[in-house]
Design a protein around this nucleic acid. Structure first.
Lengths: 306, 306
DNA sequence: GCTAGCCCACAACGTTCGGTTGTGGCTTGC
DNA sequence: GCAAGCCACAACCGAACGTTGTGGGCTAGC
């Protein structure tokens, strides 16, 4: 591909060969192989060089794009000045939406979003420099953050109840936490020992809920399918979580009140991380932070004040 | 790259090898080479398979994107169902802007824009099926379109005068064609025999202008640079042409009146071209066509009625 | 109209790359 | 403790891809 682009720019194979530090014959061969693979002629050979055919013209921007993408791919793992690497707890949740907004506001900042197991892994990765920041609920009690890690409350995501159409609460405009006692709430995939498990443990303990984490986690598609079809099951879902709605299903999102359980995403980063985009991310957070009203909401006691 | 993506999805090299119909050892080798080239570890090898490292997680979406781009590149020259291929006369002119609008309105339609020499080439390419449509001024007198080619007036692009700040007309809010007689208008790159040359020939003959096509065409950057710095030179430029403004220059776009010369872009296509997106393009043209007012405008006599 | 210059394609050849088979080490689970 | 599963290393072999050498075809200039 690179040979094709260089040859197209040069207008002749000879110059392209010089640019690539190979022989003209090698360029000729590479182009011939590419043409054979594609099944079309890309250049018309003349005595003065090689001009693009119409197919070649159509192909050229795609080839350039491929080189750009390849370069970005390499840059994403380059030591030193690589894209800002941020860990988010759920790929479709509020933190992920915030990063989308950040990307829209600063499209020039290269960004990679990864998705680590839990806050322990995230903190280790932040300390090692493998990632630059993380959106997480801060560590559970007895596990304070190391001194070189800073954190700030970033987004609070209210939880909603997600039910199928036949669920007893399907018609409710909102439900209280007290009303949920006795109903089965199914959240497969919760792994004990993680900070998100600790969040739901506290929620269960404080309001007497029944959360079942049993069964293997087959992904959100399977979860939604099951919830939609099972009248006795409901699940919790972040209000800002973008669902991929299963086709043909009728799912209900019901706000939870008195209080509203809120999942607290803090931004974590290492104090001496020199990545320039980190400051931009902080500025973006400050700029987009809505006025917070903690009245009527619940977070675990181990989450620090704002 | 494909091996990396397949292995990441499979979670182990063995299964990836089966998917790719190669041996596990080959997968191991390919990944090892990729890791060596990138200088980072992409997988952590365990007894149960291979899990992505953080670098691998960051790299994965880029790798997927690369495969997508590669597939689109191949599709762009695939015989049969390839993207709609449209020829536009200037890469930044009105027709090009229209295609951008079409792409925004129908992002699902794959599109390739090419850029042929003149209408003769374009008609030949349309007849051969190499391209699907072309935005062109219809053929000059004595050169009717072949019977299998249809055309419809699509966009009229008014010409404006482009001058530097020191030009005699730089301060004018508008100029008439009669006022331009005696001024030097420089349009390098006009090639005799093309339909666009015929347009300017007629314009010169009818209004007694002085258009100089001398000198090699070093591209629009050089043209703008020269016009900006030379008080005695001006040039014509389509009103809807998106310029890449040279840094530090002060260029003026001055409307031309009495009459306003208008470059007529017709859409040309082959009657029996079966490409489904062609109908969508027609519909888009009809939907976006503004009400036309031909009063006070000029086009060559050989351009048919609307 | 011939020739010199330029550019690309074809052929022959050697190295390198990338696949295979064979094997061993490590972890996990019964 | 052993069997099963998975990955890495080594040896080997063929294909791929580079090189050098050469020829054909178009163009420009005398």
């Amino acid at each position: 591909m690179r040979t094709f682009v260089v040859a197209a720019d040069a207008g002749q194979f000879q110059e392209a060969a010089a640019d690539l530090s190979i022989t003209q014959q090698a360029v000729s061969k590479r182009i011939a192989v590419l043409e054979k693979d594609l099944g079309v002629r890309l250049f018309t050979r003349t005595a003065r060089g090689a001009a693009l055919t119409i197919d070649g013209q159509a192909f050229l921007p795609h080839a350039r794009e491929l080189l750009r993408v390849a370069e970005r791919a390499v840059a994403s793992v380059r030591a030193g000045h690589r894209p800002l690497r941020v860990d988010v707890i759920a790929s479709r949740g509020a933190a992920s939406g915030l990063m989308r907004g950040f990307h829209r506001a600063h499209p020039e900042i290269e960004l990679d979003v990864v998705w680590l197991f839990d806050i322990e892994t995230a903190v280790a990765a932040i300390r090692s420099g493998a990632i630059d920041a993380s959106f997480r609920a801060v560590a559970a009690p007895g596990r304070p953050l190391p001194g070189d890690i800073e954190s700030v409350r970033a987004i609070d995501e209210p939880l909603q109840l997600l039910t199928g159409p036949a669920h007893a609460l399907a018609g409710a405009r909102s439900v209280t936490l007290a009303q949920l006692a006795g109903h089965r709430i199914w959240m497969p995939g919760i792994v004990p020992g993680t900070e998100w498990a600790a969040y739901y443990d506290d929620l269960v303990a404080e309001f007497g809920l029944t959360i079942e984490a049993t069964g293997p986690n087959f992904g959100s598609d399977a979860l939604l399918d099951t919830v939609a079809d099972t009248p006795a099951l409901a699940t919790f879902m972040g209000a800002q979580t973008r669902l991929v709605w299963p086709a043909g299903h009728d799912l209900r999102r019901i706000p939870v009140t008195d209080p509203t359980p809120v999942y607290p995403h803090s931004l974590l980063w290492r104090r001496d991380n020199p990545h320039p985009a980190l400051a931009t991310l902080h500025a973006h957070l400050a700029a987009t932070a809505a006025g917070h009203d903690d009245a009527g909401t619940w977070v675990p006691h181990w989450v620090g004040p704002r």
